[in-house]
């Protein structure tokens, strides 16, 4: 139970500042996925590491209150649904599942490549939420007792 209180005040203060920088970097990686190395998978994991930082510094009780775990579950499930909806929109517009139906734009520009940035964002959110929830449930599980049915 002592682990749930988190670390010292120095760590907490540094975390409060640095988490936002990590989230910013994660979104940079996700949004530039079609231009530079990275994309939804890498950026999503960086996002998850940023949330994991909060978990390690503040403890699981505070994190659950602050991040609204039910909301995260809903976002996780909604992202995969949105992925399917964008794919089905491709059928109605161009006649193929998961077709790239938005205008391609100019090469090397941030807003280009049609549906690829949208899929990158959805995959990033999905990976971040699911990995963070897995770690959260691992952190809450007491390996010694508890959980025995």
């Amino acid at each position: 139970m002592k682990n749930n209180q988190g670390m010292s005040i120095i760590v907490k203060t540094v975390t409060r500042v640095s988490v936002w920088l990590m989230v910013l970097y994660a979104w940079y990686i996700i949004l530039h996925g079609h231009l530079t190395p990275g994309g939804g998978f890498g950026g999503g994991v960086i996002f998850a590491i940023a949330m994991l930082n909060v978990l390690l510094a503040y403890g699981s009780e505070f994190t659950e209150k602050w991040l609204k775990i039910r909301l995260l579950h809903d976002i996780e499930a909604a992202s995969i649904l949105l992925f399917l909806i964008v794919g089905i929109l491709g059928i109605s517009v161009l006649g193929g599942f998961l077709t790239n139906f938005i205008l391609k734009g100019k090469l090397y520009e941030l807003i280009s490549a049609g549906t690829i940035p949208i899929f990158n964002i959805l995959i990033g959110i999905k990976v971040a939420m699911s990995l963070f929830l897995a770690v959260l449930i691992l952190a809450k599980t007491n390996i010694e007792n508890g959980g025995e049915v």
Partner: peptide, 28 residues
């Protein structure tokens, strides 16, 4: 074809997006 400079992301999210959908499902 896709307008993306990163050819790897062009493959996983355009040419073979169905693959990625299955992968996301497996992760889920």
């Amino acid at each position: 074809d896709t307008g993306a400079a990163n050819l790897v992301s062009a493959i996983i999210l355009d040419y073979r997006a169905y693959d990625t959908l299955g992968e996301v499902t497996v992760l889920f």
